[in-house]
């Protein structure tokens, strides 16, 4: 175990994966000499050479398109998109190509690319350095969507992503890159996909969150405990595959559900969780499901604290569900 920040855990995961397997190769903008704008790849070019940590031209479709070609050929490329907000030039390669290679070839051409990218608000990034557009990718068959919230998970899920056989969109909560530290297991310690993490057990209400929303959701649960409300917090960890059984089991126990994400509400991932509960846990529900989300606006610069869900808002939504039934 070593104490690391979340971004250091990402760096460590990349380091260990590259050390273990010469086929692991990184590509992206400013990731070499500069170590990435968030320093996630710090030291890796120096350690493994510029042939394995490729500083690419400024073209996201070029990064993902060439990563696909590398993966088809048998390498294990890990591409970095500098901000999730800039992934859209590569959207065609991701949605039309990466996600569909295995399928459209009848299984002949698996295409295992990991795309790492910092996402989310709270760093004064305005419209174009704050987005949380995980739902686009979760909506695309063929992509796995992973969102760690702790340093240990950042490394463990990243190692699982690199050892997976399918394309993975790996969303790194940049707001807590450095604000969260924790013990990270050394060595090849992988966290499996599709297994939610119980952050805190509770009996009155279930709070579902992922990524950067896990800390404020946990804080909300602590505040609720002060009011005598026992809140359970589940960190979903992977949106695809989703640990549906854990979500349903939690609500069967508590009877109440609050889903938290910073993405806009309409068609956000919370809608999927709410629909799942309506389908599979309807008779356990004692109160309407609540969603605490970003707004259906672009992400505002000056008012990001107004936009982003926080602990008081999450606690308030939970209290309302407890009061209503």
């Amino acid at each position: 175990m070593t104490e690391r920040t979340l971004v250091q855990a990402v760096n460590r995961g990349l380091f260990e994966a590259m050390q273990a397997d010469p086929d692991v190769i990184l590509l992206g903008e400013d990731i070499g000499v500069n170590g990435g704008v968030f320093r996630a790849t710090e030291g890796l070019a120096q350690q493994f050479g510029e042939d394995r940590v490729l500083d690419t031209p400024l073209s996201e479709t070029g990064i993902v398109g060439t990563a696909i070609g590398m993966a088809l050929y048998g390498l294990k490329p890990v591409a970095e998109i500098q901000f999730l907000d800039f992934i859209y030039p590569a959207f065609d390669q991701i949605v039309s190509e990466l996600a569909k290679f295995r399928y459209r070839s009848g299984g002949q051409y698996p295409c295992h690319v990991v795309i790492r990218t910092p996402y989310g608000g709270g760093i004064k990034g305005g419209l174009y350095h704050s987005q949380s557009s995980e739902a686009y990718f979760a909506h695309t068959p063929g992509l796995k969507v992973v969102v760690p919230s702790t340093p240990a998970d950042a490394k463990g899920l990243l190692l699982s992503a690199i050892h997976d056989e399918d394309p993975v969109i790996f969303l790194e909560p940049k707001r807590i890159y450095r604000s969260v530290t924790g013990e990270v297991p050394d060595g090849d310690h992988r966290v499996p996909f599709g297994a939610a993490r119980v952050v805190r057990e509770g009996t009155d209400v279930s709070l579902f969150a992922y990524g950067a929303m896990v800390p404020p959701t946990t804080e909300a649960a602590e505040a609720l405990a002060g009011d005598g409300i026992s809140a359970e917090v589940l960190d979903l960890r992977t949106l695809v595959p989703l640990d549906e059984d854990a979500i349903v089991a939690s609500v069967e126990k508590t009877g109440r559900a609050v889903v938290v994400h910073e993405a806009p509400r309409t068609c956000g991932f919370g809608a999927e969780v709410a629909a799942l509960l309506a389908e599979r846990a309807f008779y356990s529900l004692k109160a309407p499901i609540a969603r605490v989300t970003g707004f259906d606006t672009p992400f505002p610069y000056a008012l990001e604290n107004v936009y982003l869900p926080d602990a008081p808002r999450i606690a308030h939504a939970a209290r309302s569900t407890v009061r209503s039934g």
Binding site: T66, E97, Q108
Partner: peptide
């Protein structure tokens, strides 16, 4: 395997060439 979107195979061919070089 081909796809319908025009041009997407071009960057992929470059990536495969980079891999072959490696």
């Amino acid at each position: 395997v081909a796809s319908s979107p025009i041009g997407t195979q071009i960057t992929q061919a470059v990536g495969a060439a980079m891999a072959a070089r490696r």
